[in-house]
């Protein structure tokens, strides 16, 4: 395992199960993820990627299985609580606060992390400005800090989301289709940015992705889901050459 130098994995998933009305959406999925490692979760449409993701971030409760974050079981916790334990998220369709400026969006996450949101009288935005600008600097959005998110280009929104996800100094980053809707060149740039930040800050990153250039170019390891089951796991070259994976992607259903 590459990147597993620190010993215990950041994220450990064991025997995850979920069914909807008798249909097995996710069946006995297990994997582990270490600090500073980028793990891509791929598979055809309907393979169970989103279900899997939503069980990790607290949106869905698994029927069975264990999800450990730094050794702590997080099954049954709400998205809010999971975030408090150090999990950042970006969404397939970007979710930002449209009526707030870019900087205020990031500050919101920073305030939340610092537990300063309950204040009734202090003016919002006066604190954590430097921290926000530092994050914006890193994702290259400082020049647009004053613009409301409602008017941003899609690719820029994705980057704002990334900054917000990084605001609580996460141990784990969950990115659902981080490059969906972006131009190809932007995609690689965003993931390169993510990868460099993750490695520098020793953040474990789990992402789903359709763009195979991004997946094979950026991921340290890849796991492949098909019809709810894990059919392959390993380094990019191993997965690329896995016959079952090739069958799924090239041969359609099998």
């Amino acid at each position: 395992m590459s990147g597993g130098k620190a010993g215990a994995p950041v994220l450990l998933v064991e025997g995850l199960h979920k069914s909807f009305g008798g249909v097995q959406a996710v069946e006995d999925v297990s994997f582990a993820l270490s600090a500073g490692e980028l793990l891509a979760l791929i598979g055809p449409n309907g393979a169970g990627k989103s279900t899997c993701f939503n069980m990790l971030n607290g949106q869905l409760a698994p029927d069975n299985g264990v999800v450990r974050l730094d050794g702590r079981d997080i099954v049954g916790l709400s998205p809010r609580q999971i975030w408090r334990l150090g999990v950042g998220r970006t969404f397939q369709i970007t979710a930002t606060f449209a009526s707030l400026s870019v900087r205020e969006n990031v500050q919101m996450a920073l305030y939340s992390h610092a537990g300063r949101l309950r204040s009734l009288f202090q003016r919002f935005g006066t604190a954590m400005r430097r921290e926000a600008d530092a994050l914006l600097e890193q994702i290259g959005m400082l020049d647009q800090a004053e613009r409301p998110c409602g008017v941003l280009a899609y690719g820029d929104l994705k980057r704002v989301e990334l900054a917000m996800a990084l605001a609580n100094e996460p141990r784990l980053l969950l990115m659902d289709e981080p490059t969906a809707g972006m131009a190809p060149r932007e995609r690689v740039a965003l993931m390169e940015l993510t990868a460099s930040l993750a490695r520098a800050r020793r953040i474990a990153v789990l992402f789903t992705e359709h763009d195979m250039d991004v997946v094979f170019g950026q991921a340290d390891r890849i796991i492949v889901l098909d019809r709810g089951r894990l059919i392959a796991a390993g380094l990019p070259e191993e997965v690329r050459n896995n016959p079952e994976v090739r069958a799924v992607y090239l041969g359609g259903t099998h």
Partner: peptide
Amino acid sequence: YVLRAGRDSPLRAEAIG
């Protein structure tokens, strides 16, 4: 600001705790 955030995107608001 939290109220406005919650109106703009409840999903994102929950996701930042």
